[in-house]
Design a binder for these strands. Structure first.
Lengths: 336, 336
DNA sequence: TCCCTTGATGAAAACGGTTTCACCGGTTTA
DNA sequence: TAAACCGGTGAAACCGTTTTCATCAAGGGA
């Protein structure tokens, strides 16, 4: 209790100089085995903990890492945060977390502000421009999740495969005219998925009907309902699960019931996708895994050990067939 | 860019000593108005930012605050985190966030580890024992959310009122035998609510049927379904919304449909409560507000200014009548 | 035998702030 | 008029590490 024990206390107790104590911790191989042992035991006995501030002052490193997410209340992100944190904890990094509220400007400011508090950053689904991103990248090591910018390490999901799985599924169910409800244009993965949808639907010989871009929220999904109804399709692919759930909810207001009157497939497989009624057909993306991997990358960057990831990792997705998708003819028969 | 500007650079530029520069920032009233102006403009011109580590080293303060939550993937918590963070940002505190995974032991360890990184803590729904809590409290200023321990500042919700509102609602609907599905015994608010349920049901002349304690998760709610069915009640109050949703989901598996065959009311009003189908009748607790208030309290504690909150704040709750509760006779008629 | 490595160690100089203390000129008080 | 006070300021000590540099003993090659 009371007065904290410093490196000098340990030095005195072990009868060596402070320098040797320091070396024992940072460069153990530089100190003789027996002195090292002596220092270690003294340190343990006194319950010595190095003062972070003093270390930071001289090394210029904080030992912290930062995470920024666009919206913590979107269930997608807590999972990846958890993945990052678990790994960060194993590696001994405390983490600073901020929520940008889906605002690219604020996001960039937050990164600047975080900059001086952390040694490295994990940016989830960054909304800011490539240029801003690259300029921050020059200041601090960073790794991206769900975003790709040339030259910046990243972990992404194999969205093309995920979309392909959905398309195959819908085709197998006999759907022909298929709507796509996109996410915000500011979102990298929304643009990527849009591209994948277009190319895979075309490749499968199906007709794509673009419904428009909406906020990646429950409300966003609801506001897509009218346009979906006007699109004259039997199935809709939606940018993410939260929106899909919103869409289904609003469709119900119009007396259109899913899946009987309309097939809806989401994306992400958030927890509530399975809990909804009917349960949502979707594509699972390994969020915790992505977080953990990103953290591993960041650690590699920071310690300059391990594989410095050049090509962005692409995590496998998994198609989940649940209750919101049915055969097209059946849907139409019931709709009459 | 390049070399960071130090207090000495500013001192030189303003033609004063470093001491004066420091004073200008920490004790402005101690320096003459005109010198102060000179220093300030020099600092601005050079874009001077004090080095946190150096400040920490001498003051012993980090300038950071910490948040610990039991489970970030429970939608209850991101909201309160957001409330804390917004306020923290206004006040200029970076925040360290950790997730204890609902584990009291881990939680206590995390607090210890966070301890040396932060000046103060906000603990959400702390799971650890009163003793552990008090011992940590001796180390660092802290404020609790959704937990009460004598002598520790806290912001809580007026659960008694919330429960009372639910009871009144159920009584008005004609329910008489009412089940209660409790949360984990480790949760303070679960114990509090259990007490409130018992007393308010008794006061209303209704019969309480205790269903048991379950994990505060969707799965926890599902596992309560059988016992609920065996309880021979027309309505159930559930510890929180996530569990209520789980319960409803599992009841459907048994062919019991809500609200026709069973009235269910939740608690918290998480986002998905409104989104579910049918939408969940519940009690709204102001989560963001609670977070913001807690952060304000913590700031008061840290700066020794403002109201040092003695009595825990109790935030008002609001009853939300939605689709999972209906009149008892009707429920029974349909059940036949 | 002597010189040159080599490995282990300690003394001391950073790192960038804050704070104590002494000093100085000017004003009030006795 | 002398003594006490006071606001504003700078010199220097200090916070607890890491790291450079010098020192020293021991071992190896010539």
């Amino acid at each position: 209790m009371s007065v904290p024990v410093t490196i000098r206390d340990v030095a005195k107790a072990a009868d060596v100089s402070p320098a040797t104590v320091s070396r024992t911790f940072v460069r153990p191989e530089k100190v003789d085995a027996v002195t090292r042992e002596r220092v270690l035991s003294a340190a343990a006995r006194l319950d010595y903990r190095p003062n972070r501030a003093a270390q930071s002052l001289i090394t210029g490193l904080t030992g912290n890492i930062g995470i920024v997410v666009p919206d913590l209340t979107n269930p997608f992100f807590p999972s990846v945060v958890r993945g990052i944190q678990n790994r960060a904890e194993e590696l001994g990094y405390p983490v600073l977390l901020v929520d940008s509220g889906e605002d690219p400007v604020r996001e960039s400011e937050l990164v600047t502000r975080l900059g001086r508090q952390v040694d490295g950053l994990v940016l989830c689904a960054a909304r800011m421009s490539d240029e801003d991103l690259l300029s921050h990248r020059r200041q601090r090591p960073m790794v991206l999740i769900n975003r790709q910018v040339p030259g910046v390490p990243a972990v992404t999901f194999d969205n093309a495969a995920g979309i392909a799985q959905e398309v195959t599924h819908l085709k197998a169910l006999g759907h022909v005219r298929i709507g796509y409800v996109a996410g915000p244009g500011t979102s990298y993965s929304s643009r990527v998925r849009q591209g994948a949808v277009t190319s895979h639907l075309a490749a499968a010989g199906l007709t794509e009907v673009a419904v428009g871009s909406f906020a990646p929220s429950f409300e966003g999904g609801r506001s897509a309902a009218e346009k979906v109804l006007l699109a004259n399709v039997t199935a809709v692919m939606v940018y993410n699960d939260v929106m899909a759930l919103g869409l289904i909810n609003q469709l119900a207001q119009y007396g259109v019931s899913v899946p009987n009157d309309m097939t809806v497939v989401g994306y992400d497989d958030i927890e509530f996708a399975a809990m909804a009624n009917p349960a949502l057909t979707t594509v699972r993306v390994p969020r915790e895994e992505a977080g953990a991997l990103a953290m591993s990358y960041l650690n590699a960057l920071l310690t300059a050990t391990g594989p410095a990831p050049e090509a962005p990792a692409e995590l496998k997705t998994e198609f989940i067939f649940r209750g919101t998708s049915v055969r097209a003819p059946l849907a139409q028969a019931l709709a009459e």
